[in-house]
Nucleic acid binder design. Structure first.
Lengths: 213, 213, 213, 213
DNA sequence: AATGAATGAGTTTTCATTCAT
DNA sequence: GATGAATGAAAACTCATTCAT
């Protein structure tokens, strides 16, 4: 006789959200293939059947997780208001924001990692992700132009290349932290190491971008 | 029952190697959890039982794959003889080598990706990996010192930070290529895009490293 | 929360009927085990809870479907007024009625099929079905007697055997149509094929029944 | 630690056969949707994993069952050597063979029933079934011609129609036996009832076929 | 009377690993 | 050394049914 026991929430949005949050955690920690539906159900406080009720299957649930992860970073980026700052400050802001965001959202890095393993097949299913990201590049382009007009920045810089570089400098250090620490026998996860990394990255990007005074 | 099945190879080293090569392909393509023992056996032209004969289990096989992947890139790097070049050329060489190696060994990037997902737990089991990598940092350090002595490079550069930056600039672009292309609606895998990326990375690193003037 | 969902029908008989119709469709198409409660709810325009409100469970719903299917064919048969016709015409009528009914009610054939798979266990639960069917055999018996009295029909014909034969000649052709067409590589569902079949069946039954002139 | 316990057979063909036999029983008894993989595994004396090892999935296993069922009846039919008999005897033989085969192979009727529910989709996947069945129709055609040449049989009889009629007369009676017995309140499964049915069917077919003499 | 979110038990399918030959 | 048939445990996914609103 199924369908008795425990207090039920009867709150569609809440249940959906709890499942998504649990799925984000599990997928980030174990990757797509390693994630377990059972464990997501437990983590969510709901049950397996509900995952299939709200999301069609494991794959669709993962797509929803990825969309949500991108939406979250996009929302955070749009709070930066980079165009309100002086070009140099704007670049510093973008670097430290990227760095801080990756540090506080390790699940984002890990989800991206997982998604790369699958040749972005899940992201390609999503229509929303593209548009918002392009806005960031537009903003960065505007910053570069302003800096150039002020004779501060060099010309001919592709904003997408620059964005990828900024992201890559943070990403590789953090995403590969365990591997790098093991391989180079040096703990790269200490607070001190992190401060040094942020400084190094800022030096690199501005050292490249700024015209010698 | 004579002549019933295919001729057997009876070649210990060859079978071991074929299994390792097949495992590298499968683990790189699908990740650790997504990889299938069955498929590795097929790819290797051998059979499942042999995997367990030569390697104890899936995990040990993965460790062997990772060790081999690192050994391969180490061997390639040691062929560079960076110290035979002028510091600027040495840096250029290291950047383009890293870039080319990643391009021609996508499986290395993907294995690294997978290993990061597992918090480097397999690499930590290996003793060989650490030593060789440290040699590279020593070499890079020597290059930086020489460049500084020639008043070409800025001082105070941590060779490990620099190495991580050089690797990260290539890695993020290539490893996330599918995702970035999807998200920014721009094909980053064309030959032209790759040439531009290499130029951009070299500009960034030398722009940062070299003293003006 | 006013006006939140669709307008409710609040019509007891209508809802019951819509559920029964939907269940007939689904059970006929998928069989008992293959039928889905969820789908019946959708098809009916109602919801799952209502199925359990009006019918106790899946099995009872199937019994109701079977009873209704038999009631429908019985009602149609009683409209035939076979006894108003000359014996030969009455037999012709019965054959073509059976044929036409099966053609226009494929769900009846499929439900019967399903019920046979379950050893008639659902029909046995119903009390109404037996009586009405017996009336048909009585009628057929009367027709046979009349034909015999007129020296048209042979004697010693069991009306039940004859009925089963008439039904079987149509049933097998139609129920197995897909299978037969596949197995004998000949499309038995064309209008022409159907006309030929009716002629053949009539020839067989009358050829057997009628005394040579 | 999987993979220990119980004595293993290590006989490919035997295991395959035992699974097929068990599947035939379960599919015939419960239909496709009602059949349980677990139960087939038990019946076969093997285990679930083996079903997927030899047959890809439930559906392919069912296709294999259907092919085997057809192959079995075909093989039996070809043993009849109908062309060695006088046309009238050949027809009698075919009728009684069909009847007896259906009686002794209720699983064949039930599988056919199930297949019809699925619109012959599994049979359509099989290539072998068509050819052998056509041979039967050729044989029947030859019998009809011979009977006609001897002025015993009427002309213009389509052998496929006749075959379908012969099969249908047996099939409907036997396949629907439970349902008919319930609906007409008469036990149609007794030995006496069966003898009468065979007589009736023979009377019908020959009554139709033979010219009055 | 109507709704649809929630659930436990079950169903098909997959997987790494082992054993007989 | 080599092979592939065999297996238990667990994975994803489904289903009839019930409960809160």
């Amino acid at each position: 006789m199924p369908g008795k026991s425990k207090p039920q929430t009867r709150n569609k949005e809440r249940t959906r959200f709890l499942i998504l949050a649990a799925a984000t955690e599990e997928f980030a920690e174990k990757g797509f293939a390693g994630a377990r539906i059972e464990r997501i159900a437990e983590l969510s406080g709901s049950n397996k059947r509900m995952l299939y009720y709200y999301y069609r299957n494991k794959e669709d649930l993962f797509v929803a997780v990825m969309e949500n992860a991108y939406k979250t970073i996009r929302d955070a980026e749009s709070e930066l208001h980079l165009l309100d700052f002086h070009p140099v400050e704007a670049i510093r802001s973008l670097i430290s924001f990227t760095w801080d965001y990756y540090i506080h959202h390790p699940e984002f890095l890990r989800l991206l990692n997982t998604e790369n393993l699958y040749h972005a097949e899940h992201i390609k299913q999503s229509k929303n992700i593209g548009f918002y990201n392009s806005k960031l590049i537009d903003t960065l382009n505007e910053i570069l132009i302003r800096g150039q007009n002020e004779k501060l920045f060099r010309g001919g810089v592709d904003p997408l290349q620059l964005y990828i570089s900024i992201a890559g400098l943070s990403y590789f250090y953090l995403s590969n932290n365990d591997t790098l620490s093991a391989v180079f026998c040096r703990d790269l996860s200490t607070p001190k190491a992190k401060v040094e990394r942020l400084q190094h990255m800022t030096d690199i990007v501005l050292g490249y971008l700024m015209l010698a005074g």
